[in-house]
Computed example of a mutant assay.
Amino acid sequence: MSPMNSHILPDKWFVYQELRPEAPVRLVCFPYAGGATAIYTGWAAALGPDVEVAALALPGRERRIGEPPDVEVERIAAAFASTADRPYALFGHSMGALLAFEVVRRLRRDGAQLPVHLFVSGCPRPDQPRGDDIFDGLSKLPDDAMLERLVRGGGLPASVLDEAELLELMLPVYRADFGWLDTYDCGDEPPVPVPITAFVGSDDASARPEDMAGWAAHTTESFTRHIVSGGHFFLDDNLDAISRTIRAGIGGPVA
């Protein structure tokens, strides 16, 4: 979980690989469970000078390693509300997609500025019942069983199991993230007035194309779905295609 070679603003929630004050739009990227801002190294270069790319810095990892690794939608939404100095969009993969969606709903309840677009990736629709996926229920397992499932699902290299010091740092983060996922309840709220674009891997058993199609019911605006090659962790192999789609999605609202 090494930090990005980047800048971090005093609000501590957002890490920028390159500050672009003249960019007309900001894209904020949410990590998957157990992930951190380093996931999005390279996105600023891929998206180009007209998009300022920030990664959400959650507590308990990287520069915030000394903080309890809690997942708190209210605090994240408050950080967005206090720093929204231009139009912005959200991107989230797996857990990050659900978290970004909940931040949008919280911002709506608070009457704060909403994003111009929500990009969700590798995550079934919010109201889909959980329990059958390899990543479901992990917070209820003993450490060894949880880590073994993560390795089988591709979310953790097997070599990490021999790194005792690294595991000591990572386990509380996994517990917090999967605890949030395992207790997640979509509830009953109206669809959000934000366009949604969904990305799904063609071979992803955790978020199948038909699962991702269900996001359409959660927006009153446009919905599109893009199937890319790969399994659950398809971001790096498809960054060019994803970045092109993101630029197209946020180009209209901020032109």
Rank of each mutant, 00 (worst) to 15 (best):
R130F: 08
A158Q: 06
D240C: 09
R225Q: 15
G48N: 01
F234Q: 01
G92M: 05
F234S: 01
G35T: 10
G42K: 09
A164C: 10
R86E: 06
E168P: 14
I246G: 05
A33S: 03
T41F: 13
L90M: 15
P68D: 13
T219L: 09
S159L: 13
M146A: 02
E74H: 15
S82Q: 14
P59H: 04
S6H: 13
V116I: 11
V194W: 09
Y184E: 08
I8V: 06
M95T: 07
Q17K: 07
G187P: 05
W13N: 01
T41S: 12
Y40C: 09
N238M: 07
E168H: 14
T245W: 14
E52A: 01
T41V: 04
R208C: 06
G201T: 00
D133I: 05
D85A: 12
P195W: 00
P59R: 08
E72W: 08
E221R: 11
D236S: 07
G187A: 00
H226C: 10
D133R: 08
G179F: 11
C123W: 09
A164W: 00
E210I: 09
P142V: 14
V15A: 03
A84L: 09
A217K: 12
G214H: 09
W180Y: 11
P190V: 04
S2K: 15
L150E: 01
A158L: 09
V103P: 10
L181S: 13
R152M: 10
S229G: 14
S82F: 07
G231L: 13
G122C: 00
A207Y: 04
E72T: 12
Y16I: 12
A89M: 05
V25T: 06
S139D: 03
M170W: 00
R106G: 02
P129I: 15
R105L: 12
V120R: 04
D70T: 15
M4N: 06
S206V: 08
A158W: 04
L118H: 04
D185Q: 03
T197E: 02
L138I: 03
A46S: 07
I227C: 13
I76L: 06
L107W: 13
I76R: 03
L169S: 14
S229Q: 15
V104N: 05
P172T: 08
D177I: 11
F223P: 03
F30H: 04
P31D: 04
M1K: 07
W13D: 00
S229A: 15
A198N: 06
V120D: 00
P129V: 15
P172V: 10
I250W: 07
